[in-house]
């Protein structure tokens, strides 16, 4: 049934690679942002929270377009990168950047929920034992947020697998280079007689996402058992 062409294989491999890279790259920032929002008491906290959550509600095409303006060769960041010979737009890194921005709020949300379960009195105990704020974050909060990070990473990975709108604007739809599974499906649908292949990739996409979510759940369950014993 899974009769895949070489470009289909490339699309699947690229999807996994992009999702994995985006997830791993966003973990440190996701943890810090989650910790800042959970424990931080500072001005502009609500604004920061709003900005972080914005990609969740904006149309992905808008996110893609804004990223294009930022990372394009005439953009603020893109211009700087161009001077060092780096180009992001229309490379697979653009797909990573799109997934990163769109998936980040989901990661932060999951991390935050996890962090808020940590007893604040443990942090107080650490402070009275001579640990500074930063030390407490690294020695107490980080080890206790493994489960939260795993849950967030799972969500982010699954979301990245399905990222379409921002990716097509920022990375284009170049088979073998920036074409992920959703983009390949989009291509097949627009090609007369491509319905069969589109369906094959759809099923593969469902299987992959489901496997990611179930695998994540299983890991979370194992983690919970370990921290209880």
């Amino acid at each position: 049934m899974f009769d895949l062409t070489a470009t289909d294989y490339q699309a699947v491999a690229l999807s996994v690679r992009v999702a994995l890279t985006a997830t791993l790259l966003s973990l440190p920032g996701g943890f810090l942002a989650g910790a800042l929002l959970s424990f931080g008491r500072f001005r502009g906290r609500a604004l920061l929270e709003g900005l972080l959550n914005l990609p969740l509600v904006l149309p992905p095409v808008v996110v893609g377009y804004l990223l294009l303006l930022l990372l394009g060769s005439n953009g603020l960041l893109g211009g700087l990168l161009a001077k060092t010979g780096l180009r992001i737009v229309f490379t697979w890194w653009a797909a990573v950047a799109a997934s990163l921005v769109v998936g980040f709020p989901l990661l932060v949300r999951a991390v935050r929920i996890g962090l808020e379960e940590i007893d604040p009195r443990l942090l107080q105990a650490a402070r009275t034992l001579g640990a500074s704020r930063r030390d407490t974050l690294i020695s107490i909060v980080l080890p206790l947020s493994g489960r939260a990070l795993l849950a967030g990473a799972g969500l982010m990975f699954a979301r990245s697998l399905g990222e379409f709108g921002a990716t097509i604007v920022l990375a284009g739809n170049i088979p073998g280079l920036t074409q992920t599974i959703p983009l390949a499906i989009f291509d097949y649908i627009n090609t007369p007689g491509g319905e069969g292949r589109a369906m094959t990739l759809c099923l593969l996409s469902v299987a992959l996402s489901l496997a990611a979510l179930l695998g994540n759940e299983a890991l979370l369950g194992k983690w919970a058992k370990r921290s209880r014993s």
Partner: peptide
Amino acid sequence: PPDQRRVGVVFQHSHLFPHLSVEGNLLYG
């Protein structure tokens, strides 16, 4: 700040760090 006061506190509910062993807890400070 609490970490510079050198005032040690033993709380009602011991607040031991759950991810550390007894030894890890003892040597934390």
